[in-house]
Write a protein that binds this DNA or RNA. Structure first.
Lengths: 135, 135
DNA sequence: GTAGGGCTTCCACCAACTGGAAGGTCAAGA
DNA sequence: TCTTGACCTTCCAGTTGGTGGAAGCCCTAC
């Protein structure tokens, strides 16, 4: 299979696939004309990567997960551990965004949004953090 | 004030402040020894930037917001517009993360997490997207 | 032979910093 | 006076995960 084929089948852009080869995530063979030649197993890996990335795993985590996938003697606890760590990151991010959302929507509600210059959003942004000038 | 002073007072790392100067967000003066010399107004801008960034506004949005802040003839609707756009982005991100969280926590619950190799997390990742091989 | 698609490499760029090296400045202490 | 240490300077490189584009093969069809 050429890169266009696996791109279509994996749902990943060809550019991304070349990038994944660059960083050693897949190692397709080469045809006589220099084209990459993907095996079934490469396609499989790419699909794995696409799915893992879509769940937000980092490239490094993907690397680890693929290793575990390849290792028939793995312990599922190792996989679960990675997933749990990732879940925690997601939770932290959601928390952070929710906090932003809170503040921001509060400010938006308070802003008249008319043609006058007074604006609680700007007032908030302009407020200094609780620290004072140097002596 | 030297960079260390405004760093402490604004809560921003000195490196970040230099970077902000690089991209034209602040323009501190220079002392005879080559050190940056920050005015009160620079500190104010930096605090503004720090606050806006902490709410997740992009640097470009910060630029616009600072311009509006400086413009005494601004319409608060312009500010509100920027904030609303940003809120939408936040909502989209939260939505995306929540979806990931959903899938992931589901998989984690399904995984035994013991020393056996069977793992629904890996099984899910390994599933191909709904597309078939080429003709 | 030429037009088109697909493929190749390489280089640059995105956001928003962060780390580190090499070196100048300044105030205090021995 | 010298030195130590905390500041400060610039510049270069790296981070994450790709994306865009240029220049140039390859292959098939017409």
């Amino acid at each position: 299979m050429n890169i266009g084929d696996v791109a279509r089948m994996s749902g990943l852009p060809a550019k991304t696939i070349r990038y994944y080869e660059d960083i050693g995530l897949v190692e397709p063979m080469r045809s006589g004309n220099g084209y990459r030649s993907f095996r079934e197993s490469d396609l499989h890996k790419l699909a794995f990567l696409g799915r893992a990335r879509s769940l937000g795993f980092t490239i490094d985590e993907c690397r680890n997960l693929m290793q575990l996938y390849a290792d028939k003697d793995r312990a599922s606890s190792d996989v679960k551990q990675i997933a749990k760590g990732h879940l925690q990151r997601i939770d932290a991010k959601i928390e952070e965004l929710t906090q932003m959302r809170e503040t921001l929507s509060h400010l938006i509600r308070a802003c008249a949004g008319d043609n006058r210059p007074d604006c609680p959003i700007l007032s908030d942004l302009a407020s200094l953090p609780d620290q004072k000038k140097p002596a």
